[in-house]
Design a protein around this nucleic acid. Sequence first.
DNA 1: CAGTTCGTTCAATTCTGATTGAACGAATAA
DNA 2: TTATTCGTTCAATCAGAATTGAACGAACTG
Lengths: 167, 167
Amino acid sequence: MAETLSSSLPSSRREFVETAGRLCQRFGLPRSTGQIYGLLYLAPSPLSLDDIAELLSISKASASTGTRQLLSWHAIKQIWVPGDRRDHFEAVGDLHDLLRAGYEKFFRPKLERSVSKMDHLLVCLEADRKAGLLTKEEHAFCKERLAHLRSLQTRVQKLLPLAEKFL
Amino acid sequence: MAETLSSSLPSSRREFVETAGRLCQRFGLPRSTGQIYGLLYLAPSPLSLDDIAELLSISKASASTGTRQLLSWHAIKQIWVPGDRRDHFEAVGDLHDLLRAGYEKFFRPKLERSVSKMDHLLVCLEADRKAGLLTKEEHAFCKERLAHLRSLQTRVQKLLPLAEKFL
DNA sequence: CAGTTCGTTCAATTCTGATTGAACGAATAA
DNA sequence: TTATTCGTTCAATCAGAATTGAACGAACTG
């Protein structure tokens, strides 16, 4: 249902796509994925895979992997368009939900893993000490620094839920 | 002054280096830079470029660029060791300061640029509209979505200084 | 003064991961 | 049924960034 777009975008939407792509890239995500989200975010009606591929000048393969990625993050959803066999996609506009989900799915698990990693390192440090691999000063110094880091982690863990509420 | 380390690290420090390297990599920074910071963070005494290169098994060129990078972020500092002509490096332990600086230097400018970009896009949208490139609905839809994004930006701008204070 | 030692720079290489074309299976249409 | 459309997968390619070796200039040393 994108016949009105034929094969190009108004400059506002084109620039938005570019910005979204670069933003994603900065965060280590594929640029094309960001472009797809940007495209859909300003699309008044759902777009098919072919629309996306053509409007962004990317292969259908990229469009497919990108949309599946975005679907897995619940950043876009599939829309059934009566009389059209193809999948159509639409951006989830509520970025607040998106951020919350992103935090739950990405940051929180990573943070938790980093906390256990830290605990493991403290254990490791004691083992090294017992094995006589560390001088007394080295041991004390490392322990202090690791503890510092550890306390920062817990502060971050406390902060993020608050931040989410604030937004 | 790393002769006690000869050419290998206790497992606790080795794992820490690895973790720090991967963390950096996730954020789009060179892995070796993170490794260098990790190495120095748990180093009881300052290390020379050669120490770093040897302990991490990287070239001196990498060590040089990595340390200069970290210096520019004030994440490490140069230490003069009497009787040794070489530069020595030591990690800045206060991660709170480091985070604050990182925010000021990286996130804030990026946020500000994204805000002006947004304003530009709104102008752009009006131009497209006047040029008849947009239907009424498309225009209304885009305007609403851009406004939504814009308001999120300002909320983030307000949040970050608070978060910094909280940590 | 030559002879070292340091640290940096830069062109070349290597790695990593995004992107693609082609092939495939499933679903629809004729 | 056969033919077509659609979406996904996968091996191959491509691009961009990290890493390196080699060369250089500056600062020391004897």
